[in-house]
Amino acid sequence: MGLSPNREVFITCAVTGAGDTTGRSDKVPVTPRQIADECIAAANAGAAIAHIHVRDPKTGKAARDVALYAEVVEHIKASGVDMVLNLTAGMGGDLTLGNVEKPLPPSPDGTDMAGATERLAHVAKLLPEICTLDCGTMNFGEGDYVMTNTPAMLKAMAAQIKALGVRPEVEIFDTGHLLLAKWLYDQGLLDDPVMVQLCMGIPWGAPDDMATLLALTNNLPSNWTFSAFSIGRNQLPYVAMAVLAGGNVRVGLEDNLWLDKGVLATNGPLVERAVKIAEGMGAKILGPDEVRARMKLTKRW
């Protein structure tokens, strides 16, 4: 089978994430203004989509406060810079068990379990063009933390996202998650065109080798649109992997803190590097309106 690289690529920038990265880099945006400014810088560098988490401005820890999301969105709107906004809906599915001898009750440190409606409160209020749907449950790290998304939770969240008229970006962390995505689609809970993000190289999910990437892409329905990324030092090489596999690209400080060896990154230069890689492979970089047309998104302002 010959190569089928993507010739028209859109770039998503995941600007801050929810991980404990603020202690490792002072470039990670924390306040709503900082997060908005990084989204703007990413858009000016060539990202069509900004993927947004928020953080507690006092502690830097992950948050899901609707007011913080609203402040980020208002700053972006006031800037006049056009981009597609993709708000995470992954928060509220965090379970940290007590310990290996007494897993219950869960540890309050790191546990944040919320119902479907509460997890989508900021989406319902702000109506972004896209929000994420983490399609499965997975171990993270080496301790007792589990990313928790049951089939029942996914059904409820997918139904609410659909009713809001928001496009879900289905996050696939492992091969079984793709089966869950197809199951949701077969029940009419995901509308065409389906948008998938392949999250590779995250322990203990799908590894980021080419064989595993192709195992996933070869099992995607042909009319689904996908992006793919890896983390850490493999983020930028994976730009080429994603394009070669026929997909789109994600970079940003959520997944990688470094631009070069010993050089801490900000989001704009990571996007610039991704643009250079993709264009060097013969791809055109799509802007936000082109992504809206392709993914049938409703522009909100």
Results as ranks from 00 to 15, higher is better:
Arg119Ala: 03
Gly98Leu: 10
Met281Ala: 02
Pro106Arg: 05
Met157Tyr: 11
Ala240Gln: 15
Val73Tyr: 00
Arg233Trp: 07
Asp192Asn: 13
Gln197Gly: 11
Trp258Thr: 12
Met157Gly: 11
Met113Val: 15
Arg294Ser: 03
Leu257Arg: 01
Met147Gln: 15
Met195Asn: 12
Val54Lys: 14
Thr12Cys: 14
Gly19Ile: 00
Pro5Val: 05
Glu272Tyr: 02
Val9Asp: 05
Leu257Tyr: 00
Met147Ser: 13
Asp191Phe: 01
Gly46Val: 02
Glu290Cys: 14
Leu154Ala: 09
Leu95Cys: 15
Lys296Arg: 05
Gln197Met: 15
Arg24Glu: 06
Gly115His: 06
Met91Phe: 13
Pro269Ile: 00
Asn267Trp: 04
Gly188Asn: 15
Ile49Asn: 09
Leu259Met: 05
Gln187Val: 07
Trp204Phe: 07
Lys276Ala: 15
Met83Arg: 04
Ala78Met: 06
Asp37Ser: 13
Leu180Val: 12
Met1Asn: 14
Ile285Cys: 14
Gly143Ser: 15
Ala278Val: 05
Glu142Pro: 00
Thr212Val: 10
Lys27Tyr: 00
Ile11Asp: 06
Gly247Ser: 01
Arg233Phe: 07
Trp204Met: 04
Asp65Val: 05
Glu290Ser: 08
Pro106His: 08
Leu127Tyr: 04
Val28His: 06
Thr22Arg: 01
Leu85Asp: 08
Met295Ile: 15
Met138Val: 13
Val194Ala: 00
Arg7Phe: 04
Val239Asn: 12
Gln235Val: 03
Ala36Gln: 02
Ala41Asp: 13
Met157Leu: 06
Trp258Val: 07
Tyr238Asp: 09
Leu244Met: 07
Val123Glu: 03
Ala48Cys: 10
Tyr185Trp: 13
Thr132Leu: 09
Arg7Gln: 10
Val73Pro: 05
Gly92Ile: 09
Val84Cys: 11
Glu8Ala: 11
Val263Met: 09
Gly19Asp: 10
Val81Lys: 10
Leu85Arg: 07
Tyr185Thr: 11
Ile52Arg: 09
Leu198Asn: 02
Leu133Ala: 06
Glu118Phe: 01
Arg7Asn: 03
Leu3Asp: 15
Gln34Cys: 00
Val73Lys: 11
Ile285Asp: 11
Gly268Lys: 02
Val263His: 12
Asn248Met: 06
Thr12Asp: 12
Asp255Pro: 11
Leu198Cys: 09
Arg233His: 13
Leu257His: 07
Gln160Cys: 04
Ala45Asp: 15
Arg250Phe: 04
Asp56Thr: 12
Ile202Ala: 00
Leu164Glu: 04
Pro29Trp: 12
Asp82Ala: 09
